[in-house]
Design a protein around this nucleic acid. Structure first.
Lengths: 298, 298
DNA sequence: CATGATTGCTGACTTTAGTCAGGCATTTCC
DNA sequence: GGAAATGCCTGACTAAAGTCAGCAATCATG
């Protein structure tokens, strides 16, 4: 833990977070309680399901219901059943609610501009790019990686996205059904990891540990929304650590020639190309890495 | 208003402020209400005067008093008279309070580190310097400048700091009592501006408009805490604008040779040195600037 | 179609936050 | 020395935020 770095982060958390946060809140709450404004804002012009609002705002179901009732009473929102499932209800803005939302939107613009206005041009540009950098890297650091069975909804979402993307990128397409080899990726025959940002699954990766065969990394995927933030590298590291912990002294993997970022990642992570070791029709490159230097469990 | 820049700022406000802010709060509030923790934290190992806490946390006197009573009841804090003024009371941490504070401090470290830990070295450095940049520039943009009579407490604080600093920096000392020429800096004989960051006065500057004498800028001062952020430049601009609005076609000012940053500021703002025009015993340099190019009101 | 799980709503709370007027002790200013 | 100002405290509020248990409707499933 580096004292100097930590001090900067703490100072940042303290001043920026609190000060800007307070400003933001005071702009949002125009005579109405803050929670109501936030809710109104979160519903948005497109409307939203009650359950989605609950998770996004992290509110108690009862409290949220009451807030919705209040907004409904004020004529800003209508709540009603929407589609297939009759239990699920959606909130939509009325015309008045939409007007109010537009107002909040404009005020949010004004607040943002008020932070830029007092600065000179050079400073403005520097502030904005520093903000973008902070946001990007903070997102990266809020990604957590954990074990997750491939049958879990978050894992399914990742695998669907994985297959969809490969099907789109491979010249030959990618005709594999999700779930066909799930059994391979649950202990003790393997392990499956999912990377999560807040509540969204943004990456995954699996390890196959079949006795007598080389330990193999499979299904490594990172969502476009967080690509370039090192999530793939972290997944790879974690998979290697687990392979080493399981006694493997090397890991193998294969990949398609269209996945250039992945190939680059493997090379920079210390993988070297080896001859074909399986019959995967979609593979063009086969890699391996010795695990001598990889730390064990942790 | 630049759409692109505003969008980045809004995105930043939304994700960083809310996400990090919420994290921060949840770390701070360990079973105790948030306001109490914040207060305990703000008192700190060195203790603090009640009035200082009130302005720093921007709390109602009654509410603050009650919070202090609660912390006192919990044996974490003692409040009592401290020094000269018997009305002023100070809060200090008891041993238990200090232990609690240390805990908060450690947890704050951990939170900060948890934001850095998942990143690689290069990313860490980039995040930290971007954070420092955001903090600096945001502070700069949160500084507001307004007219304020020199008798106002915030103005007095600035003037006291101004005189104190000059007394320390001038080779000859600076034996001037605050308030001697207050009458010169209230309309219509002049104007006095104060720069404020949140609740703290961080800079000031005055304009003297005596008929028959050159319009003169006086008492320009910027707190060390925000120096280098362009606050001096903004004060100077605003004073020039007001001078122009009052019909002046030039402004004068004098300064001491030890105030090198100020001299640099004047030069870069378009001031040029002129011969001595007054009998100020503390002045070594005299400057003037024509106001042809300066926009009128606003 | 019976069962159990989900989803959302309501009533009845508690806690936290924040405000306001009045009061007392002390200090400062004529 | 007395009036005004300052700093803090207390009592009596209100409003907002959050929690919990129970209920009713709906859906998936065998």
């Amino acid at each position: 833990m580096d004292r100097q770095l930590v001090d900067v982060v703490r100072r940042f958390n303290r001043t920026v977070t609190q000060r800007v946060g307070a400003l933001d809140d005071s702009y949002l709450a125009r005579d109405r309680p803050l929670a109501q404004s936030r809710l109104l804002w979160e519903i948005g012009p497109a409307g939203a399901e009650v359950a989605a609002l609950r998770t996004r705002l992290d509110l108690d179901a009862g409290y949220l219901s009451r807030l919705l009732r209040t907004l409904e009473g004020a004529g800003l929102v209508v709540v009603g059943p929407t589609g297939g499932d009759g239990r699920v209800r959606s909130a939509r803005l009325t015309e008045a609610g939409r007007a109010e939302w537009d107002l909040l939107d404009r005020m949010s613009d004004e607040l943002a501009w008020s932070m830029l206005a007092p600065l000179r041009d050079g400073q403005r540009g520097r502030l904005v790019s520093a903000m973008a950098e902070v946001e990007r890297l903070l997102m990266a650091s809020l990604v957590t990686i954990e074990v997750c069975p491939p049958s879990d909804p978050r894992a399914r979402a990742c695998l669907r996205a994985y297959v969809g993307e490969l099907d789109e990128r491979f010249e030959s397409g990618f005709a594999v059904t999700v779930g066909d080899d799930d059994h391979e990726l649950v202990p003790p025959a393997g392990v499956f990891l999912v990377a999560t940002l807040a509540t969204e699954a943004v990456g995954c990766g699996g390890l196959r540990l079949s006795p007598g065969e080389p330990v193999e990394i499979k299904r490594l995927w990172v969502s476009r929304s967080v690509r370039g933030l090192g999530v793939g590298r972290r997944l790879l590291d974690e998979l290697e650590r687990r392979a080493a912990a399981a006694g493997a002294d090397a890991v193998h993997l294969d990949t398609n020639r269209s996945l250039t970022e992945a190939i680059q990642l493997y090379r920079s992570a210390g993988y070297h190309e080896i001859p074909r070791y399986n019959a995967n029709p979609y593979a063009h490159h086969w890699f391996a890495k010795r695990l001598d230097g990889v730390a064990g469990p942790n």
